[in-house]
Amino acid sequence: MEGNLRVKKPDLTKIKTFLLGSRTNYGMVFTVLLYALLIAIGFVYLYPLLFMLVTSMKSPTDLLNPMVQWVPTTLYLGNYEKALRVLDYSNTLVSSILVSVLPSLITAAVCSLVGYGLARYRFAGKNIIFALILATFIIPAQNTVIPQMLMYKNLGLLGNILSLILPALFGQGYRSAIFILIFYQTFLSFPKVLEEAARLDGASDLRIFFQVALPAAAPAFIISIIFSTVWYWNETYLTSIFLEGGIQTLPMQLGKFTQAYENLYPPGMVNIFDRLNEAVKLAGTFLNILPLLVMYFLLQKWFVESVDRSGITGE
């Protein structure tokens, strides 16, 4: 009898461990639940993208056919051809890249300078400067945009990329506060020993910054440039006010897609299949985010993994 019990007990615990887990493993029930939840949330997350991708490949007949939900009957790329023309893709793509990459490079460079100053020197009024940096993050753009626009108008810079570069050059680029905090955290987390050693060797402060501190801050640079590029790319409020009439970015062009489409394909002139429909619009939307998707999949390691290294949390 006793022997029997002894055999049975470990069996039960084994099943229990298998289902409910132990200290080293989560157990079957939890694992299944976890994956179910992850897949469900993942689907909800991707739903707009899938919807966009599928709809953008529907031909006009598929769109009208209520039977066609998720699988188009034919692979139809006509929507993309039209969207490419409407968006004036090659031109807007190049200007979008310029408008997002140049200011973000400058932003990263200036923010590293400011972040280093805040992290390494004790000076009077530092707390005030911190408060003001946070304030620049909170103040809505429309509280400052009109005088800025008038200023650029007087300088003849409206429609010129300089209207985005100048603020970036002075640390006032789009969401610069976040990047200053990232660099501040990064430099704060470095041990001071190296810089002190360099100072003992007679290096000047600027030289220490450029040759000792900056190379070690590479992850912060990469993450700042990536995020800044993405945010500048997606920014449409400032760009549409400052660049309108001079430079067309992709999101700006998407914002007036209907108008641009009807210029190219006047509604009265084309047959019913060439009228603007949601498939063409979504093809345009997809073309809009495609460059960012490519960038994301190429650099995704940096999006996620450098965060712990650069300490994005500003506590």
Binding site: I41, T236, P251, K281, L282, N288, L292, L293
Partner: peptide, 19 residues
């Protein structure tokens, strides 16, 4: 889960919401 970080721009959201 990080994908939306790169694609949440005004016009994109507007188009998606409209559809």
């Amino acid at each position: 889960f990080f994908l939306p970080v790169v694609i949440t721009s005004g016009p994109v959201i507007q188009e998606l919401t409209a559809q």
